[in-house]
Amino acid sequence: MLKRQIIEPNDYRDAMARYAGHVQIATTALDGVRRGVTVTAACSVSDNPGTILVCLNHANPNNRIFVDAGVFALNTLTHAQEELASAFAGFGNLDVEARFALGEWDTISTGAPTLSDAAAVFDCRILEAKPVATHMVVIGEVVGLRVGAPGPALLYLDRGYRSL
């Protein structure tokens, strides 16, 4: 029989702080309203067809727009875009338009905002969105793709930005 240990949320977060994650901004738009959030919980699911997942905090009612829009873009950041990552993480208390004003945005296929100088952009149509504990796991099929210029990756580790 498997013994279950009680894991406190703070202990879990402390352990996850040791896990390096690539910093990305997930974006969407619906009826003229844009939304973007900084995430590290995102990964590839499959390469055929190209499929990715991103985890969004569903306690924030503003994140519901991702599911309602049915599309999202995952914008992979370089170290030079740390200020943008911080803004979309909510530091500085900038409103939505001020956050988006820090970068150059366009669209590829779905209409979701895409960062023109991102290391990579995965423009997705949502296949499934499932609540799991505190987050919504959103799985998307990549229907548009852009690979930018290479540069040092922006990572998040030990509660701070790093580059590789």
Rank of each mutant, 00 (worst) to 15 (best):
K3N: 09
I7Q: 03
A15F: 01
R18F: 00
V23N: 05
I25W: 05
I25Q: 03
I25K: 09
A26I: 15
A29H: 05
L30M: 07
V33Q: 13
V37P: 09
V37K: 12
T38R: 12
D47N: 15
D47H: 13
N48S: 14
P49A: 08
T51P: 04
L56H: 06
H58C: 12
A59W: 01
P61R: 09
I65N: 14
V67G: 14
V71G: 08
A73G: 01
A73N: 00
L74H: 05
T76C: 05
T76P: 06
L77D: 01
L77K: 00
T78D: 12
H79R: 13
H79V: 11
A80C: 03
L84E: 02
L84I: 06
S86D: 11
A87L: 09
F88Q: 10
L94Q: 12
L94N: 11
D95C: 11
V96H: 14
E97L: 01
F100D: 04
L102A: 05
G103Q: 04
G103T: 02
E104D: 04
D106S: 11
S109A: 10
A112G: 03
A112R: 02
T114D: 04
L115T: 04
S116L: 08
D117N: 05
C124Y: 08
I126L: 05
K130Q: 15
T134I: 10
V138E: 05
I139G: 06
G144N: 04
L145R: 15
R146S: 15
P150F: 05
G151R: 02
G151E: 04
P152L: 02
P152D: 08
Y156L: 02
R159S: 15
G160V: 04
G160W: 01
L164D: 06
L164E: 07
